[in-house]
């Protein structure tokens, strides 16, 4: 039994300190996302033994190794598939998926839309830094227009995915977006997502200073984070920002939330109705 919940949040309690120093570049926004996740876990009183974190491949994928929980570093694009099997087999675990924009929207896109449709009780954090960082800075499905990457040497000309609209359209019962600039709001959003009984999708607007920022002359890490004020339009900002670099206003906060049957519970109830017993009764 984990009683540390009653104490103030201390990130060291949730990290594998023997894995430090971590692998992230100085200025990477993923660390803020990791802290927000662990703080949310702390506030929810989730025992580390009952927490499973499944990540994919990429910079985001490396985060699971630093979390002192049951962690799985899956194959590229497949953390949602691994997590679906894990959660269905072990409904007693809290299962959080950490994925990136390439992992989740490109190679793993099919798994995302079906996870949204199924509504299994998973929390999916997609850390969006607009680039394949670990492989050296190639364009991803969220690379903004005209940005330079190693595979868009003339500037990106591909349209971007609005991951939250995609998730909502595919049926996710909880969809939210937050920026790393707003760390307390991000923590609260993740907390709400984990508490939500069903598939919760959270897009975390992160930044890649070292690879993406430098190539596009977006400044240092603080400058990139502050840029989120202009580039992303938190709901509270209204229409004050004239020219976000993405097409259309990108809202933050809880973007969709509805109650519908959680997949695992519905499956077990369905089986029980037919056969008397049912998975998870034991």
């Amino acid at each position: 039994m984990d009683t540390r919940t009653e104490l103030p949040f201390e990130i060291r309690d949730y990290l594998r300190l023997d894995r430090m120093p971590h692998f992230l570049c100085p200025g990477c926004g993923h660390g803020i996302a990791l802290r927000a996740l662990l703080n949310a876990v702390h506030e929810l009183g989730i025992d580390r033994d009952d927490l499973a974190v499944v990540s994919g491949i990429g910079c985001s994928g490396r985060l699971s190794a630093y979390i002192d929980a049951n962690t799985v570093h899956a194959t590229h694009g497949r953390p949602l598939a691994f997590a679906t099997g894990l959660k269905l087999a072990r409904p007693d675990l809290h299962v959080v998926v950490i994925t990136g924009d390439g992992d989740c929207l490109a190679i793993g896109g099919n798994h995302l839309i079906h996870a949204c449709r199924r509504n299994l009780d998973l929390t999916c954090l997609m850390l969006n830094n607009e680039v394949y960082g670990m492989t050296g800075g190639q364009a991803s499905p969220t690379t903004a227009a005209a940005r330079y990457t190693t595979t868009t040497p003339l500037g990106n000309h591909e349209p971007v995915f609005d991951a939250c609209k995609l998730a909502e359209g595919a049926g996710a019962s909880f969809v939210g977006r937050e920026v790393t600039l707003q760390a307390p709001a991000l923590k609260n959003l993740i907390r709400e997502a984990i508490a939500h009984p069903g598939f919760a999708f959270v897009e975390v607007m992160s930044d890649c200073t070292e690879i993406y920022g430098r190539k596009n002359e977006l400044g240092s890490s603080p400058e990139m984070v502050l840029r989120q004020k202009h580039d992303v339009r938190p709901e509270s900002y209204g229409n004050a920002v004239e020219r976000p670099f993405r097409p259309g206003p990108w809202r933050t906060g809880v973007l969709a939330k509805n109650e519908r049957a959680e997949f695992g519970a519905a499956y077990r109830a369905h089986c029980r109705a037919h056969h008397g017993g049912g998975p998870g009764d034991v």
């Binding site: 899956a74 949602l80 679906t84 099997g85 894990l86 269905l88 099919n110 079906h114």
Partner: peptide, 24 residues
């Protein structure tokens, strides 16, 4: 008391099997 799930593709079905087995 077992679980059957039809996944979205072959890759996902193998991933889910690995995930379930990791779950014990």
């Amino acid at each position: 008391d077992g679980v059957f799930v039809q996944m979205e593709d072959e890759i996902a079905s193998m991933g889910a099997v690995v995930g379930a087995s990791i779950g014990g």
